[in-house]
């Protein structure tokens, strides 16, 4: 229950300037990509972050890994805020905090051999491991299921799944304690997705890693995450233990999202109780007042436009930001909205 905290985000905010107007063309508006996100990642656990495109999940990953600088807020690692550190301190943090990217095709330099790619972080950090670089790289290749003899091959000689393994080996070579994975399997075929997910779980157990796993695919997150956070327009709308969130979603958006996923069972076709959201996600430049989901929510009332619901514990560490959370009866029976 009281697993130590590996990483904590406190009220993270990232606004991007946008909209050029006036004679000097100064940006006049702000795109609120991430707007006050807080979470706790415990050691050895996986926090899944789900949401649709534009919800800010990838920006969040880049804030945590310092690929982007936060507008405000803190990321606490080992009791220290890392959002404003620089130079050597930042390099030390990068050693502990590594990232796996979405696209196994563009995230590897095609002109570097696999050995060069995987050993890249060692070079950046100026570390020469015991037994030499090559030995360490080959150990990593073995660990992620690559043939160590392929040390001198180039990325184009590998399939998508194998390339993602190269990316994983690169992120592990510095012995990090935390991995931020941004859509690590979404570019892969189903059969390969499963291979990579199995690998990530194996590595987590063997190396005691903590994961922040960002994905749009709810099934994938359900499989791998201990805790799940659902994001909508830059904010977390629901967060809690994976089993609770999937079994009894409290936020209407989560419910709609779960209900939209096609079920690979033709017998469930046309089952009643499907919730279909209408319209598109509003622009993060000018989000709705109050609750950001209210423009697409069938339960919205005047209160939702006036007052922004706070992310509050609904019991058992299951947090929801909603004025009118889903009742058990609505979920089991017939959500009235099938407009």
């Amino acid at each position: 229950m009281f697993t130590p905290i590996a990483l904590e985000a406190k009220n993270l905010v990232k606004y991007f300037p946008t909209g050029h107007q006036g004679l000097l063309g100064r940006p006049t508006k702000e795109l609120k990509a991430v707007d006050g996100v807080s979470f706790v990642l415990r050691q050895g656990e996986t926090l899944g972050i789900v949401g649709e495109s534009g919800c800010g999940k990838s920006t969040l990953a880049r804030l945590i890994t310092r690929l982007l600088d936060a507008t405000s807020g803190e990321v606490i690692l080992d009791g220290k805020d890392i959002t404003s550190i620089k130079g050597r301190e930042l390099r030390a943090v990068r050693q502990k905090l590594q990232m796996i990217f979405q696209d196994p095709y563009s995230s590897l330099n095609p002109r570097h051999s696999v050995g060069q790619i995987i050993s890249g972080p060692l070079e950046v950090q100026g570390i020469i491991p015991d037994g030499g670089v090559k030995k360490r790289v080959q150990e990593m290749m073995e660990l992620v299921g690559l043939n160590p003899e392929h040390y001198n091959r180039y990325p184009h000689e590998f399939s998508g799944g194998q390339r993602q393994r190269i990316g994983i080996a690169r992120s592990l070579i510095l012995n990090p304690s935390i991995i931020i994975a941004d859509e690590p399997v979404s570019a892969l075929d189903v059969s390969i997705q499963a291979q990579i997910l199995n690998l990530l779980e194996k590595l987590q157990q063997e190396l005691g890693l903590s994961f922040v796993f960002i994905a749009h695919d709810l099934s994938v997150v359900r499989h791998i995450a201990d805790q799940v956070a659902v994001m909508y327009l830059g904010k977390i709308v629901e967060m809690g233990p994976s089993a609770d969130v999937y079994a009894s979603a409290l936020h209407p958006y989560t419910t709609a999202l779960l209900s939209a996923v096609p079920v690979p069972n033709p017998k469930m076709r046309g089952a009643s109780g499907r919730i279909r959201l209408e319209g598109d996600v509003p622009s993060p430049v000018d989000p709705p007042s109050g609750c950001r989901f209210r423009t697409r929510c069938w339960k919205a009332t005047d209160l939702c436009a006036l007052e922004e619901p706070a992310l509050a514990d609904a019991g058992g560490g299951h947090l929801v930001a909603c004025h009118h959370p889903m009742e058990a009866s609505e979920r089991a029976g017939k959500p009235h909205s099938d407009r």
Binding site: V190, S191, Q193, A194, L197, N198, E201, S219, V220, R222, H223, I224, S242, A243, Y246, A247, V263, P264
Partner: peptide
């Protein structure tokens, strides 16, 4: 591979 993603239990995927 798909079916085992759908169920909630964690563990080895086929």
């Amino acid at each position: 591979a798909v079916a085992s993603l759908e169920v909630s239990s964690r563990g080895h995927l086929r």
